[in-house]
Computed example of a mutant assay.
Amino acid sequence: MKSMFRMSGLGLLTYYLGIEVEQTGNAFTLRQSAYARKLLERSGLGVCRACQTPMEEKVKLSNDSTAPLVDTTSYRSIVGALRYLTHTRPDIGFAVGYMSRFMAEPREDHLAAFKQLLRYVAGTRDYGLVYPKRSKGELELIGFSDSDMAGNVDGRRSTTVVLFFLGACPISWQSMK
């Protein structure tokens, strides 16, 4: 297939910067299963009970929390690692961004929300992006939007996200087991 990614004299690309690449005749898949496993082990959640959602519904965390402080360095390390994981896992993007707001003074309730997210990652470790081969001239525009009106409990600000794909957009994020 002409559109396959090859490295000069090394064959098909299979792994790059922690991203696993699987190429077939009709699609290619990007995922970070090994990276997610290492992140979970480093966080002490290598063996944990998985959960179905990245965040609890309608969770309202605040900078004014009175819960005890947690180690800022380890909290920021988890944030950075999860931010890198969002390259192939758009399903965790909102949760990671939301919990990134508390990096200045992370509290135990903020860390508990991160543990929920890590338990979700444990259950969906093999998810990735699938980019199907498209016929020439077959462009498709797909758009998504979401917002929470005055959802920030600290400043009553809203969060709005708009995302558009044109052409060869990922059709799914799925488990590749």
Rank of each mutant, 00 (worst) to 15 (best):
S62Q: 05
S62T: 15
N63D: 10
S65A: 13
T66H: 07
A67G: 00
P68C: 10
L69D: 06
L69P: 00
L69F: 09
V70W: 05
V70F: 03
D71G: 07
T72V: 14
T72W: 08
S74H: 09
Y75N: 05
R76Y: 07
I78A: 10
I78W: 03
V79L: 14
V79K: 04
V79G: 04
A81Q: 02
A81P: 09
L82V: 03
Y84Q: 00
Y84R: 01
L85A: 09
T86S: 13
T86G: 06
T88D: 10
T88R: 06
R89L: 01
R89W: 02
R89Q: 03
R89A: 02
D91H: 13
I92D: 00
I92R: 00
I92G: 00
I92V: 12
G93W: 04
F94R: 08
A95W: 09
G97P: 09
M99R: 11
M99W: 06
R101V: 04
F102G: 13
M103Q: 15
A104T: 09
A104F: 02
A104D: 11
A104Y: 04
P106V: 12
E108Q: 13
E108R: 11
D109T: 12
H110E: 08
H110M: 07
L111M: 15
A113Y: 08
F114Q: 05
K115T: 07
K115E: 14
K115R: 14
K115Q: 14
R119V: 08
R119G: 09
Y120V: 10
Y120F: 14
G123I: 10
G123W: 09
